[in-house]
Amino acid sequence: MTVEPSVSASTSESCRIVQVSGDMDYANAPFFRHRLAQEATQSQLFVVLDLSAVPFCDSAGLNALLWAWRQAENAGTVLVLACVPPKLQRMLAMTQVDTLLRAYSTTAAAEAKLTATREA
């Protein structure tokens, strides 16, 4: 069963938490590219992409993540990943994208690290 692609966001004291759902593939890449870029350029200093509900990601989905990261960088925002599924973790490592996009085991861990970075 295919999950409809969706992006929803909430804001905490220090971060914008963006929940990403659905296959990040060729068919859905334009949707994700647009929505993630929107979320990455909000007025928050930190954005955490929660990828726990992403069952599949291909090269087009990876490109959407990189596009969002680039847009965030241009806007002065720090974008990180959280709850990255194992298959996507392997793809990030194989392509060395994990050197650009930091990943954390949970959104709480990402938020804590980003908050500590800001306070330092």
Score class of each variant (00 low, 15 high):
A75K: 06
T106Q: 05
T107Y: 05
A27I: 06
N74F: 11
L88I: 15
Y26A: 14
D25P: 03
A9G: 15
P30Y: 00
R33I: 02
S43E: 14
V47C: 11
V78C: 15
A60H: 08
L100R: 09
T77N: 12
K87Q: 15
F46V: 03
V47K: 03
R16M: 10
Q89R: 15
L114Y: 05
L49P: 08
T2D: 13
K113W: 07
L88T: 14
D58F: 00
T99V: 11
A29W: 02
T77S: 13
G61P: 04
R90L: 13
S105C: 07
D58K: 05
A120C: 12
P55C: 03
V97E: 05
E13P: 10
Y26Q: 13
L66T: 03
T107W: 02
F46H: 15
T95F: 08
T2Q: 10
A72V: 04
A93M: 08
M1D: 11
T95N: 03
M94N: 08
F56P: 07
A116Q: 12
L92I: 00
T106N: 01
A120E: 14
Q44K: 11
L66K: 01
F56Q: 06
E111K: 06
E111L: 00
L100H: 10
H34F: 13
P85I: 07
T77F: 05
S6T: 11
A93S: 15
E119V: 13
Q44H: 14
V47R: 02
T107Q: 05
Q44L: 10
V97Q: 01
E119I: 13
A68K: 05
C15T: 05
L79T: 07
A112H: 06
V84Y: 06
S10F: 07
A60L: 09
A82E: 06
L88R: 08
A40M: 05
S21F: 04
D25W: 06
A112V: 09
A108S: 11
M91V: 12
V18P: 09
A116L: 09
A109S: 00
